Amino acid sequence: MVFGRSAHRRAAAVEPVTLKILVAGGFGVGKTTLVSTVSEIKPLRTEEMLTEVGRPVDSLDGVENKRTTTVAMDFGRISLRDDLVLYLFGTPGQDRFWFLWDELAQGALGAVVLADTRRLGDSFSAVDYFERRGIPFVVAVNCFDDADRYAPGVVAEALDLGPGTPVILCDVRERSSAKEVLVSVVEHALATVSGEPEPAST
């Protein structure tokens, strides 16, 4: 009986698997919101107020009400299961902060590229980045209230995505929707690494 209790304690002490996921995309697309929505801890944010000096550099077309911007990263954590924890790293969206991406990408299992159909071209840089480095990613179209809706296949064609790259429609303000995005990127990344087919979507 003593052995049984000891074995149980050892099993209970096993640390969960931790995976690193990047959340990337253009300026004002919802990266900070996604991390904040799903994080089970108080998320770390590195936001600064936008200034008039930055207006020539940071285009506010389509996001005129935006007042802050991430200058380093967002960080959060979510447990998908008792034995699986995701560490989320939201990247800054502006080109002038791209020097941070290489450091943030180290050790990442996969990535989410958030897209806004009003400014779909802003997603090209992130898509190119992960394709060049062979990091599995999904494209998550954040469905803003005043944005046109397009089928995932139309978005995939517009972004010239490689075959098999998932495109998901979501609302990152809703926890269940944002969590579904993260489940999708984990499944896609693990299937890519293992070479096994991904679970059929329901």
Rank of each mutant, 00 (worst) to 15 (best):
P56R: 12
S36W: 02
Y87R: 00
A72R: 01
M49A: 05
D122L: 12
E131S: 12
R132W: 12
T117N: 13
E47W: 01
T37N: 08
M73S: 05
T69S: 09
R45A: 15
V138M: 07
L114T: 00
V138C: 02
S36F: 00
I135P: 02
R67P: 00
F97H: 14
T37G: 10
A72I: 01
T32A: 08
Q106T: 06
F124S: 11
M73E: 12
P56D: 05
G110F: 07
D83W: 00
R133C: 00
S79R: 15
G134H: 14
R118N: 05
A72N: 02
E131Q: 08
T37W: 06
L100F: 14
E131A: 06
V53R: 15
D95H: 13
Y87L: 00
D116F: 14
V38Y: 04
L109A: 01
L114I: 00
R55K: 15
R67I: 00
G62Q: 12
I135Q: 02
A126M: 10
L88C: 13
T69R: 11
T46K: 06
K66E: 12
D102T: 09
G107A: 11
L50G: 09
T37K: 06
D83F: 01
L114C: 07
T117S: 14
G90E: 04
G110W: 10
M73C: 05
G30N: 09
T46P: 04
P43L: 08
R118D: 06
W98M: 11
E103W: 08
N65S: 14
T46C: 03
P136M: 08
L114W: 01
A105G: 06
D83K: 04
T33L: 02
L84Q: 08
